[in-house]
Design a protein around this nucleic acid. Structure first.
Lengths: 214, 214
DNA sequence: GTCGGATTCGACTCGTGGGTCGAACAGCCA
DNA sequence: TGGCTGTTCGACCCACGAGTCGAATCCGAC
């Protein structure tokens, strides 16, 4: 009660210097992700972001070295939500492919509904510098591989039959990546309901195979 | 053989003035759509388009009044490919909903695989001026309505059961709108095969209902 | 030929927005 | 109290790219 005099949107609390720095960076990123998504990357100026945060443009440059880097960080966070989730994806062999598919869908939908995930999916990679773009593209490819692998395994353990895993994976990613275009967190549908609907849809489309053999 | 001396990428033939004008406009549009899609709208300069066509930037302004208008026209063409196709969509009542669904998917995939359709789907509407954006958004909404309606009818005529037409329609649009991100016309899969795969996928996901009554 | 409109382009303007600089200020430790 | 580092900002720079202008050229009609 004695030391709290925050005029800035950064929370309060006076952790040590480095911690403060990191926290402020996060706030900037979240805000940026939201605005980038709403208006589009190129339609957003650094002044817009700064204004939203009640800080000045040069201050942004104290935390990031370029507009591009801000976008890149947003993408990175989005990707890592999938690739390095706190609980790792269950490895093949643990549970059926169908179960792992569900887990994957749940995770991905969650990601895509978050500010960073939305930003990742809605702002193209065109804007990124080659170097950063390469990393983002790599990350996405890795995620693609995860789903593809699960679909492949489904054919083996018989838990789901999928004629063309590559193309099917793309259909599924499409359905999920489109979510930010129409879904609103504060709308009538909860994220859980959304996930369930998607899972049901995909489940129907990929019926269990007759064969089996663990 | 006597009069053909084209130094310009516009074909040859010497139709009347207005026809030439219209034809050149089309060529510009297709080229622009392609480049917009490849590099992104904002990453494309008018000089890029002009260079590609071996013309100068001011010449573009002879055919279009702004960069924005060029994009808008691309979107318009894409949308009209669905809404005003040469053969109109069969009206409800003609055939089962499932049949109409197939026809719709076929059409939409075709559109999305074309330069203009790809452009429509990949470049956001953020860049468009409010007025133009409103029209594009309206068109898209109309297309949304088409699919939603078909899904609704499917519940009635029993040809397909769909728990939540609104959300399901979005999943399907997502799957289709994502196509330009991974599909290449000159790849191993033909457009027909692609359409078939999608139709099969959706068919599975939306099984026929037990009820009926024409 | 030559006139007039259609077409094309070189050279320019100019707003916008990413990025920089140096000064001011805050908080901490002696 | 003085000084040091970390943080913030007002004012500026400047490249880039959309859009313009006026002159040059092309081409069919008389």
């Amino acid at each position: 009660m004695a030391k709290a005099k925050p005029k800035r949107p950064w929370g309060e609390a006076i952790q040590d210097r480095g911690e403060q720095f990191e926290m402020k960076r996060q706030v900037v990123l979240r805000t940026a992700a939201r605005i980038y998504t709403e208006r589009g990357f190129h339609e957003t100026t650094l002044a817009d972001i700064a204004d939203e945060l009640n800080i000045s443009k040069p201050t942004l440059y104290y935390y990031f070295k370029s507009k591009d880097e801000i976008l890149f960080e947003c993408h990175r966070i989005g990707i890592e939500a999938i690739t390095d989730g706190e609980t790792p994806m269950p490895p093949p062999g643990q549970g059926t492919a169908r179960e792992r598919l569900h887990e994957f869908l749940r995770r991905y939908v969650r990601m895509v509904v978050d500010d960073f995930g939305t930003c990742l999916v809605m702002t193209g990679t065109n804007a990124l510098e080659p170097e950063n773009r390469a990393e983002v593209v790599g990350g996405r490819r890795q995620i693609d591989g995860m789903l593809r692998a699960i679909l492949d395994e489904g054919g083996l353990d018989g838990s789901l039959v999928c004629p063309d895993p590559k193309v099917t994976a793309m259909f599924i990613f499409g359905a999920m990546n489109w979510i930010p275009h129409w879904y609103h967190r504060d709308g009538p549908i909860t994220v859980e309901e959304l996930t369930d609907r998607l899972a049901a849809f995909v489940d129907q489309a990929l019926p269990p195979g007759p064969a089996a053999g663990a």
